[in-house]
Amino acid sequence: MSVIKMSGIVTRFGDRTIHDGVSLHIEPNEIYGILGGSGSGKSVLMKEMIMLLEPNSGEIVVLDQSLRGISFAQAQALRQQWGVLFQFGALFSSMTIAENIEVQLKEHSDISKEMRARLVQSKIAMVGLEPFVGSLYPSELSGGMIKRAALARALSMEPKLLFLDEPTSGLDPVGARNFDKLIVELRDLLDITVVMITHDLDSIFSIVDRMAILANKKVVAEGSLRNVLQSQHPFVEEFFKNDYTKQKYLDKLDLKEVAGV
């Protein structure tokens, strides 16, 4: 049973077609990467999954709930089952980090104030931030801390599904690897499914279980790294089988045979 299933998605902005029949499915408890060149509609696809945009046609089923003709109450219920990490955090600038993490609990649950405070502190610790960060405002944090704080907020409703938009972009290499590690740990610990848009080769070769490659308005390859590497599509050739990846990843991971390079 898939966590997310998209079939025949067509998206147009004016007379520009972004997706022309995109289909993919995401299985429980996996880290699923959405890859593609810039302008290939990765972010648009994710926005369609989280109901920020609606495709012109096609079927999206998220957590057994079809998004077409979804009622307001169903949509609200669905939204509480996922967390979203935006590329630049999108923390509410008028609230402290603790308030940012707390706000959904306050609005969507009836737990006590004291319990909320504990939950907030546990989330702050979970993403590896110091306790005092809770009292700071987003403008007082560094880029890496903002990502972590935003991840803590995304986790605040104990979601089963986590959407990450370029989680490691703008982080230093060490910070990025730590963030990858954190995502894997949280996946194992909390038993969640992670959907992420990424360009980061390290993430792709180390933590992503399955992925979809978007190119030419379609999914040109989907599956595990091994499956994807067998594709002959120009984008896959260019992205995965260039000299840099050959030396850095394919040699070490014994994937040269699979990739046919």
Partner: peptide, 16 residues
């Protein structure tokens, strides 16, 4: 400004 920093998108995804 909230639109640019995606705060409004974030609100929507949280069901606010």
């Amino acid at each position: 400004a909230m639109k640019i920093t995606e705060e409004i998108s974030a609100m929507r995804t949280m069901g606010f």
